[in-house]
Structure formats: structure tokens, C-alpha cells
């Protein structure tokens, strides 16, 4: 299990939140996502995935990843 906090730009509301959560769930059902609209962060806990893949998935959902931080 590893956790990464991504800095994500372009999230506005609950709709954006569920869009990101849905996209990440699609990659792997075991993934855990915690979106914080106020901090503009997405915390992802996952196994057997590369952070790059996760970043790409968030970007493909229509958001801009400007940073990340491993916990």
C-alpha cells in the first residue's frame, strides 16, 4: 500500500470529485481516493500501480496535475 497526494487544478464541485473518483475506480477497484476540493488535492491509496498512470488518468478525466507528494 502506498499513498500519494496529487495537486490538481480545475476541480470545482462534487461533480468533478466523482468524475475523478470514478475514473480511478475504473483503473483498479481496490484504489482508494480522497478528494479535497478546498486544498485542491487528491489523495490516492493504491497497490501495483505506477504514480505516472494515476497522474495520466486524472489528466485524461480533464484536470491538470501540477504536483505530487508521496506520504
Amino acid at each position: 500500500m502506498s499513498g500519494i497526494v496529487f495537486k490538481v487544478e480545475g476541480m470545482k464541485c462534487g461533480g468533478c470529485k466523482s468524475k475523478i473518483e470514478g475514473a480511478l475506480k475504473n483503473m483498479d477497484s481496490g484504489i482508494e481516493t480522497l478528494v479535497n476540493l478546498e486544498d485542491k488535492t487528491v489523495k490516492v491509496t493504491f497497490e501495483d500501480l505506477s504514480p505516472l498512470e494515476i497522474k495520466k488518468t486524472i489528466e485524461e478525466a480533464g484536470f491538470n496535475v501540477t504536483g505530487m507528494n508521496a506520504e
Binding site: K7, P51, A70
Partner: peptide, 17 residues
């Protein structure tokens, strides 16, 4: 590989760990 952290400073560069 991949970094533990990374941050884009727009128009200037990247800060990463």
C-alpha cells in the same frame, strides 16, 4: 522511475523529490 514528490512552477521549472 518516479519521484516521491514533484511540483510544476509554471514557466520556470520543476521542483521534485
Amino acid at each position: 522511475g518516479f519521484p516521491e514528490s514533484f511540483e510544476v512552477v509554471s514557466g520556470k521549472g520543476i521542483k521534485a523529490k
